[in-house]
Simulated assay, not measured.
Amino acid sequence: MGKILWTIIVVLIALWLLGLVLRIGGGIIHTLLIIAGIIFIIQLVTGKRSV
Rank of each mutant, 00 (worst) to 15 (best):
residue 1 M to N: 12
residue 1 M to E: 04
residue 1 M to H: 08
residue 2 G to D: 10
residue 2 G to V: 08
residue 2 G to M: 04
residue 2 G to W: 04
residue 3 K to C: 06
residue 3 K to N: 15
residue 4 I to S: 14
residue 4 I to T: 12
residue 5 L to Y: 04
residue 6 W to H: 02
residue 6 W to F: 03
residue 6 W to G: 03
residue 6 W to M: 01
residue 6 W to Q: 10
residue 7 T to Q: 08
residue 7 T to D: 04
residue 7 T to F: 08
residue 8 I to T: 11
residue 8 I to L: 05
residue 8 I to E: 14
residue 9 I to Q: 04
residue 9 I to Y: 01
residue 9 I to L: 12
residue 10 V to P: 00
residue 10 V to S: 08
residue 11 V to E: 03
residue 11 V to H: 02
residue 11 V to S: 05
residue 12 L to H: 03
residue 12 L to D: 06
residue 12 L to M: 11
residue 12 L to Y: 02
residue 13 I to H: 01
residue 13 I to A: 13
residue 14 A to M: 12
residue 15 L to I: 06
residue 15 L to Q: 09
residue 16 W to P: 02
residue 16 W to M: 05
residue 17 L to I: 07
residue 17 L to W: 01
residue 17 L to G: 03
residue 18 L to E: 04
residue 18 L to F: 07
residue 18 L to I: 05
residue 18 L to M: 05
residue 19 G to A: 07
residue 19 G to I: 00
residue 19 G to D: 02
residue 20 L to I: 02
residue 20 L to K: 04
residue 21 V to G: 00
residue 21 V to S: 05
residue 21 V to R: 09
residue 21 V to Q: 01
residue 21 V to K: 12
residue 22 L to W: 13
residue 22 L to D: 04
residue 22 L to N: 04
residue 22 L to E: 12
residue 22 L to K: 08
residue 22 L to F: 09
residue 22 L to H: 07
residue 22 L to S: 02
residue 24 I to K: 14
residue 24 I to D: 02
residue 24 I to L: 15
residue 24 I to P: 00
residue 25 G to V: 15
residue 25 G to A: 15
residue 26 G to P: 02
residue 26 G to W: 14
residue 26 G to T: 15
residue 27 G to P: 08
residue 27 G to H: 09
residue 27 G to Y: 13
residue 28 I to Q: 13
residue 28 I to C: 07
residue 28 I to K: 07
residue 28 I to G: 02
residue 29 I to G: 00
residue 29 I to P: 01
residue 30 H to W: 05
residue 30 H to C: 11
residue 31 T to V: 07
residue 31 T to D: 05
residue 31 T to H: 05
residue 32 L to W: 06
residue 32 L to S: 03
residue 32 L to R: 06
residue 33 L to W: 11
residue 33 L to F: 08
residue 33 L to P: 00
residue 33 L to K: 01
residue 35 I to A: 14
residue 35 I to K: 08
residue 36 A to N: 05
residue 37 G to I: 06
residue 37 G to V: 14
residue 37 G to P: 02
residue 37 G to K: 03
residue 37 G to H: 09
residue 38 I to K: 11
residue 38 I to E: 01
residue 38 I to P: 05
residue 39 I to K: 12
residue 39 I to Q: 12
residue 39 I to D: 12
residue 39 I to M: 13
residue 40 F to G: 07
residue 40 F to Y: 02
residue 40 F to A: 15
residue 41 I to T: 13
residue 41 I to C: 10
residue 41 I to E: 11
residue 41 I to P: 02
residue 41 I to Q: 07
residue 41 I to M: 14
residue 41 I to N: 05
residue 42 I to A: 09
residue 42 I to V: 13
residue 43 Q to S: 12
residue 44 L to M: 13
residue 44 L to V: 07
residue 44 L to I: 05
residue 44 L to E: 12
residue 45 V to A: 10
residue 45 V to K: 08
residue 45 V to T: 11
residue 46 T to C: 13
residue 46 T to P: 01
residue 47 G to E: 04
residue 47 G to W: 04
residue 47 G to K: 09
residue 48 K to N: 14
residue 48 K to D: 13
residue 48 K to G: 11
residue 49 R to V: 11
residue 49 R to A: 14
residue 50 S to Q: 13
residue 50 S to A: 14
residue 50 S to V: 14
residue 51 V to K: 14
residue 51 V to A: 08
residue 51 V to Y: 14
residue 51 V to G: 08
residue 51 V to R: 13
